[in-house]
Amino acid sequence: MSGKLMKLTIHVWRQANKGAEGAMKSYVVENVSEHMSFLEMMDTLNEQIQAKGEEPVAFDHDCREGICGMCSMVINGIPHGGHRGVTTCQLHMRHFKDGDEIYVEPWRAQAFPVLRDLVVDRSAFDRIIAKGGYVSVNTGGAPDANALPIPKKEADLAMDAAQCIGCGACVAACKNASAMLFVAAKASHLGHLPQGQPEQLDRVKNMAMQMDAEGFGNCSNLSQCEAVCPKEIPVRVIAEFNRDLIKAQFKG
């Protein structure tokens, strides 16, 4: 890789396993190209750590093209590093300069226990989805896609929310570690479509119940989630979720 080469100091959370005590540890990483992604910088760091015979830093990653939601690093206090609409894998090192000190931490939430270093267990999200983030499909022939008219405006609102990749940055950014943006996005995505409407009130009730059971915090309307969301999901979905949940108390 060509381009400017940088030398950086990385302060990273090291934790051997779920039960172990963790701590921040500092490393110097050399030969970081400005064209690298943040994850490639972490790969470079790991190569240099391994060359010294140490354990590399464990972190989640998969598609590296911003669509899978696996990468999950809080970079200098901001999930995914603070560039609008960008996941950690799409964050480029050109945003940093030679000699920078960078703090890299895992998502911090009671509901997201650290498994190792920067890897957290996000299965709490899966359990919330299992409670209502789906539509029940009865057997029979698949209906013709165009047979069900959906207004463009509603389809757009549903698509805004459907972009959620479930990375959990909203939880990591929230001062209360609240999962409201995630949960509400899933409910909004289905609630704006005719296929999701019959079950909407049960859906919000059950998802909210599971969200509480997992130990996420409350929404304080600071919109920190919206600011870091790599898919730029608006806090509108939270208001919709609140409204549906209030309605569900009387109709459910």
């Binding site: 302060h11 703090y103 911090r108 009671q110 509901a111 209360n176």
Partner: peptide
């Protein structure tokens, strides 16, 4: 909901 605080003040 957040037992461990971030080392870097966001």
């Amino acid at each position: 909901a957040r037992p461990v605080a971030y080392a870097f003040e966001p």
